[in-house]
């Protein structure tokens, strides 16, 4: 995954997964969350989700949730992950601010 730590820009998939895990979710629920929130615009394939979850686990931005007795693995965001998500929100705000300033006059 292409997550520029310095630039702070997350991929859309990364950001959406982090957002979905503010409440603990398993894989299928994450896919549903992304589909509902984007009205199906962002396509999240199972293989891509699997790779993204493993990368996020490795970075410790998310962690496994529950005792692991249930067959379905669920995940939840860590404080570190929340900090990253917050930084991303600020970056996006600044970006839309610039865009508004320049394009604001345009009828959208």
């Amino acid at each position: 995954m292409r997550d520029h730590v310095k630039g702070g820009a997350l991929t859309e998939v990364t950001f959406f997964i982090l957002l979905s895990l503010y409440t603990p979710r398993h894989g299928y629920a994450i896919m549903q969350f992304v589909e509902e929130e984007t009205q199906g615009r962002l396509e999240l394939g199972a293989g891509t989700l699997y790779g993204a979850l493993n990368a996020l686990l490795e970075k410790r931005w998310i962690e496994p949730h529950g005792d692991g007795n249930g067959r379905k693995k669920s995940y939840v965001i860590t404080p570190q992950g929340k900090a990253v998500a917050r930084a991303e929100l600020l970056r996006l705000r600044a970006l839309t601010c610039t865009a508004e300033k320049i394009m604001g006059g345009d009828s959208l």
Binding site: M1, R2, T11, V13, E43, G47, T48, A52
Partner: peptide, 23 residues
């Protein structure tokens, strides 16, 4: 071989471009 119940939506496993390149 991955089988999905057909819900009319497109079915792909590798959706992001980076993941696709890796695949």
């Amino acid at each position: 071989i991955v089988e999905k119940e057909n819900d009319g939506k497109p079915f792909s496993l590798h959706s992001s471009l980076e993941d696709l390149a890796e695949y």
